[in-house]
Computed example of a mutant assay.
Amino acid sequence: MDTELARTFLAVVTSGNFISAADRLHVSQSTVSMRIHSLEDQLGCMLFVRNKAGTALTSAGRQFQRHAATLVRTMEQARHDIGIPEGFSGTLVVGCRIGLWEEFLLQWLQLIGEARPEISIRAESGHEPELMQGLIEGRIDIGVMYTPQVRPGLKIEQLFEEHLILVSTDPEGKPEPRSGYVYVDWGPEFYARHNACFPNFGSPPLSVNIGWLGLQHVLENGGSGYFPRRIVMPHLKTRRLNQVSGAPEFSMPAYVVYPLEGDRDLFASAIEAMRQIVHSKPKRPPNAKRAETTARRCRGI
Rank of each mutant, 00 (worst) to 15 (best):
V256L: 03
L241A: 04
G202L: 02
F190W: 08
L215G: 04
F198R: 10
W186P: 04
M233K: 15
R193W: 00
V257I: 12
R178I: 05
S269R: 03
H217D: 10
H194F: 12
V257L: 02
M252I: 06
V278D: 02
L266H: 08
R240W: 11
S207E: 13
R193G: 11
R193I: 05
G173H: 00
R230N: 11
Y258W: 09
K237I: 07
H217E: 15
D263R: 04
Y191Q: 15
V244R: 08
S269Y: 00
S224Y: 10
N221Y: 15
K281E: 14
M233G: 07
P248L: 08
S179G: 11
R275G: 10
N195G: 15
Y191E: 15
S269F: 10
F198V: 02
G211V: 03
G222F: 04
V184E: 05
C197T: 07
R230A: 03
R230P: 05
E176S: 14
P188H: 04
R230E: 11
P171N: 02
V244A: 01
M233H: 15
W186T: 03
Y191W: 05
A270V: 09
I277H: 13
V184I: 07
M274T: 10
D185V: 06
T238W: 09
P175N: 04
S224G: 08
P253T: 04
L206A: 07
N200S: 12
S203T: 14
S207Q: 14
E172N: 14
H217V: 06
L219Q: 08
P228K: 09
G262C: 05
E220T: 15
G202E: 00
T238I: 11
V256Q: 10
N200H: 12
G214A: 03
P175E: 03
R178D: 05
P204I: 03
P286Y: 10
A270I: 02
P285Q: 12
F267N: 06
L219N: 00
N195Q: 15
V244W: 08
P259C: 05
D170W: 10
K237R: 13
R284N: 13
Y255V: 09
V257W: 09
Y181W: 07
Y181D: 09
P285E: 14
S251N: 12
R240L: 13
L236R: 07
Q276L: 14
R240N: 13
R229V: 04
G246D: 03
S203R: 13
R264V: 13
N221Q: 15
H279L: 01
R284Q: 14
G180A: 08
E220K: 15
R239I: 01
R275V: 10
P228F: 07
G214W: 06
Y226V: 02
R284H: 13
